[in-house]
Design a protein around this nucleic acid. Structure first.
Lengths: 150, 150
DNA sequence: AAAGATAATTGAATATTATTCGAAAATTAA
DNA sequence: TTAATTTTCGAATAATATTCAATTATCTTT
């Protein structure tokens, strides 16, 4: 049997979706052509970056979620974006922010379990420029990507 | 003129989208009916919570983003979910996690600017049960919701 | 204020796309 | 091995997005 699921999840995680114009039109009581026009405008302005799926990550083997607070070496202060860009490339990384304060980078990371996270931190993160990492492990996700769980 | 944009953004932020089966079918070189079946299966299993838009938040007046680390009072340790649930209800809150360590709650918050954030923290967060809040302000978002910026 | 330019709204027609259905193949259970 | 269940997939249909052209509204310039 083909296992399409993995590929499917991979695509839907960051794209390959589209707005439901007819449903929105009904909801807002406006002609669908008007909504079509307004949606295309948002897209043209690049206010919309993507249309995507939000998952119950436990069910797609990404149940272990952490916030990763990263301190950079002083010689990296100049361009935290270098390391940020590097970390953004990993599929396990949901978000990368360059922040104020003691931790110059904040990541949100999703992996299968603690072992996978250990592997992530051990092999992937300790690149030169990173001085210290604090991991805040999520026990329970109550809201994600503006979507409330349960 | 109707200002549909606000309502539109509100809906697309957490739903009212759908997968593009034909496009996925072409990409994966599979019949669209097979993909349809597999997508419906994911939905039935509730592995998919929603289909939604990801925005360039600067362009929809939510350019100010922070991570909010919250310490709870000892008498709230028993059910951090009470406060979590409460905070999850705000539109400004992208995510709520119950975490290990010094901060029992971690929020991701999006508002227009620093003033709006001050208002959020001042009026909304200081509910009984919350002892301390640390705000990590994002200077630059390099990746959000699995979508890379730029 | 007026005139012209630009942007937004909308219905009708068309093009795409999702969905249903049924049959066959594959997998799993007994 | 057989029976039950799940998955694949083509053909037909239903639903939806998109294009187009005309009208209305808004903004700009004088």
């Amino acid at each position: 049997m083909k296992d399409i699921t993995q590929k499917l999840v991979g695509l839907l995680k960051s794209g390959y979706c589209t707005p439901q114009i007819a449903r929105i039109a009904k909801k807002l009581q406006e002609p669908s052509t008007t909504l079509h026009y307004n949606i295309k405008k948002l897209e043209k302005e690049k206010a919309v970056l993507a249309y995507k799926a939000v998952f119950d990550y436990k069910k797609i083997d990404e149940g272990f979620c952490t916030y990763c607070l990263i301190s950079l070496a002083p010689d990296e202060y100049g361009n935290p974006e270098r390391i940020g860009k590097l970390l953004a490339q990993f599929n396990e990384v949901e978000s990368v922010d360059i922040c104020t304060g003691d931790w110059e980078l904040v990541l949100k990371v999703r992996v299968k379990d603690q072992d996978a996270y250990y592997h992530f931190v051990k092999n992937i993160v300790p690149r030169k420029g990173i001085i210290k990492i604090i991991s805040l492990v999520s026990f329970k996700q109550m809201k994600t990507e503006f979507v409330t769980l349960e």
